[in-house]
Measured scan of single mutants.
Amino acid sequence: MLDDRARMEAAKKEKVEQILAEFQLQEEDLKKVMRRMQKEMDRGLRLETHEEASVKMLPTYVRSTPEGSEVGDFLSLDLGGTNFRVMLVKVGEGEEGQWSVKTKHQMYSIPEDAMTGTAEMLFDYISECISDFLDKHQMKHKKLPLGFTFSFPVRHEDIDKGILLNWTKGFKASGAEGNNVVGLLRDAIKRRGDFEMDVVAMVNDTVATMISCYYEDHQCEVGMIVGTGCNACYMEEMQNVELVEGDEGRMCVNTEWGAFGDSGELDEFLLEYDRLVDESSANPGQQLYEKLIGGKYMGELVRLVLLRLVDENLLFHGEASEQLRTRGAFETRFVSQVESDTGDRKQIYNILSTLGLRPSTTDCDIVRRACESVSTRAAHMCSAGLAGVINRMRESRSEDVMRITVGVDGSVYKLHPSFKERFHASVRRLTPSCEITFIESEEGSGRGAALVSAVACKKACMLGQ
């Protein structure tokens, strides 16, 4: 009897593995994704193909990295998701002549009506938060230079001027797309009239992360975010950046690689679950690469896999709870928690219980395998993109072996128990001629924006502006 049951459990697990095998990517698959990513990057950089390229390769006008001589107080704003952060950054000489960066910050959550109302409502709310922060720190009387981390696709015309191309991540505030974001912020500050600010720089969160990590390690020339969304930036040779005049030196390019796949480059790798996630998203047909990796989508992918296993009578005796059938019910943090389970399955059992399920031991094991399959594919897909960037940098610099540091931020990278190990191992397999160091950014977005502002202020002083 026991043997029969054991055989049935083994057969069930084997069927589960057959279904989950769809998520496995072979090294040849990853090399294919990497080569296609490089081709799209090239198209994004070139003037004649930029418009139709899915990977936009947006110039950021960040050319210099901090040298350690900029000092002063800077205000930093960070808008990239449902939370908005205001930070005071003091850049100065530390002990023994070292450079020191001290920060104080406060988080504000953005109400739904500000995210989806008008641009005026959104930026009025942001300036209200700045006003509140300055009151708390008794700094209303000071006109501070301000660095703005704005983590949406922007076409820069200068370091302090950028046109919002399109909202992502659930934002829909009308009247912002096609307009200068810094102008919208300046107008809102003017409307309030109770404080003055000098907006000197606007950067993407990947750029802010790279600059913040450069402060720790001067070989950091790539910034990457794996959180709600997924994106990367890197220092490109100016001669390859056709959208900006000049051939000397390097400029940081914001790849906006989340949109890779929007022209069909990933079609052969998309599964039924991916198509369902895409169809029910706020932007169907867009940001397809990001939807395979980002935390906004990972939990939902797992939920759809679990429903398939229920329908195949391989999980929960073929019956799903009402909660499990509800879109968004299986949160991405559950994926991390399930994979963090120590082996007694308590954590998995508790999560499934909150979803109205009474799982068996085998159910718990199957749910864990589903989570591992989805998150491992995410790590491997992400590795193909980064390997594409790094191999490109090595080739354009004609280096036999390139040493490089990548600064990384984002909740999936930082909080998932195995993502970074799987990701690092896969990147290294795909970049055999590179020695890569990964560092995690601390308060990256805010500190990085302030350091970019410090560079901009120093330049302005040198130019006598």
Rank of each mutant, 00 (worst) to 15 (best):
G44E: 00
V241I: 14
C252Q: 06
L451F: 15
L415R: 08
M139A: 04
F133V: 01
D132W: 03
T431A: 12
S360C: 12
L47H: 08
N254L: 04
M402K: 04
D158Y: 02
N391R: 10
F23C: 11
N313I: 07
G223Y: 02
D132Y: 09
T332M: 13
E22R: 06
L386V: 07
A10Y: 13
Q106N: 11
S69Y: 10
D409L: 02
R325G: 14
G444H: 03
S280N: 14
K172Q: 06
Y297C: 02
D135M: 08
L271R: 12
H141I: 04
N313Q: 11
V408H: 05
F260R: 01
G92H: 05
F334C: 04
N231H: 10
E17A: 12
Y234W: 06
L184F: 01
G258P: 15
V55D: 10
E279V: 14
T116Y: 02
I436L: 08
Q18E: 09
D278Y: 03
E236C: 05
F74R: 15
P66T: 12
Q337R: 14
V455L: 15
I436F: 07
R85P: 05
L30V: 07
C129G: 09
L386C: 13
L355M: 07
R345H: 13
L20C: 14
K140C: 03
D132R: 07
K12S: 11
L276K: 06
E442F: 15
C457G: 14
K414Q: 11
K169P: 02
E95A: 10
E421F: 10
A208I: 11
I351Q: 12
C461V: 14
F74N: 03
E40L: 03
P417T: 08
D247Q: 13
R369Y: 14
M235E: 04
T342G: 10
L79N: 04
F260L: 10
S433W: 11
E216K: 00
G81K: 04
E290P: 00
H424S: 10
P432L: 11
T116D: 06
E120Y: 09
M8E: 10
D217G: 15
R333D: 14
G175V: 01
K291I: 07
L352D: 05
N254A: 04
R275A: 14
A460F: 15
D278M: 15
M8N: 08
R85D: 02
C364A: 09
A449R: 01
R368F: 09
D267A: 15
E322V: 14
A282R: 15
L386Q: 14
L352I: 08
M298L: 15
V33R: 03
R327Q: 05
I366R: 13
G147H: 01
I126N: 00
M402W: 12
C382L: 08
L324A: 11
H141D: 07
D78E: 02
P59C: 06
K296Q: 15
R397F: 09
I163V: 04
S373M: 10
D344Y: 05
Y289M: 02
S280M: 02
R46Q: 05
L309R: 02
G446K: 02
E120L: 06
R36Y: 11
F269M: 09
T209P: 00
S398H: 09
S174Q: 07
S353T: 08
V226M: 07
E22M: 04
F148C: 02
Q287G: 06
D247S: 10
E300I: 12
I110L: 12
S426G: 13
L88P: 03
C213Y: 08
D217M: 15
P284D: 06
E421T: 10
V91M: 12
Q219E: 15
Q286F: 07
Q24F: 11
C233Y: 11
T49Q: 05
L77V: 04
G72D: 06
S353G: 13
K296I: 09
T362M: 11
T60M: 03
S398V: 11
M238L: 05
T362Q: 11
K13C: 14
L25H: 09
G117I: 01
M37T: 09
R327D: 15
F123W: 02
V200N: 01
R429Q: 10
C252W: 02
G162H: 00
H424Q: 08
L292A: 14
H156P: 04
E221N: 04
D400L: 10
V154A: 03
L58G: 01
T354Y: 14
V406E: 05
I110M: 07
E120M: 10
S109D: 04
Y61S: 05
L88Q: 12
K32Y: 05
A114L: 12
L315F: 11
C461D: 14
E96T: 12
R7Y: 08
D363E: 14
I293R: 00
K420P: 09
A53W: 02
V335R: 01
H141T: 06
K296P: 03
D132V: 03
R369H: 10
L430I: 10
M210W: 10
L314F: 05
D187C: 00
P111A: 10
I19V: 14
T361E: 12
E96L: 11
A450E: 02
S321H: 10
T49K: 12
H137D: 03
M381L: 12
D217W: 08
A232W: 02
L430N: 08
L270M: 13
L304Q: 07
R422N: 12
A387K: 03
A384E: 02
F150S: 04
R5H: 05
S353R: 12
S336G: 06
V207L: 02
N350W: 06
P284H: 14
R422G: 12
D247C: 09
I366L: 12
G92N: 05
M87S: 07
I159M: 00
R397W: 09
G446A: 11
E440G: 07
C129R: 04
V241H: 10
A449T: 02
L270H: 08
R191E: 00
R46P: 00
A21K: 02
S336T: 15
E421L: 10
S411M: 02
A454F: 09
R394V: 06
L45N: 03
A173H: 02
G193Q: 07
D4N: 14
G444Y: 05
G117F: 03
S433M: 07
T116S: 08
R377P: 03
A176S: 06
D194T: 10
I439S: 09
D42P: 05
L386N: 00
D194M: 05
R422E: 14
L307P: 01
G295R: 01
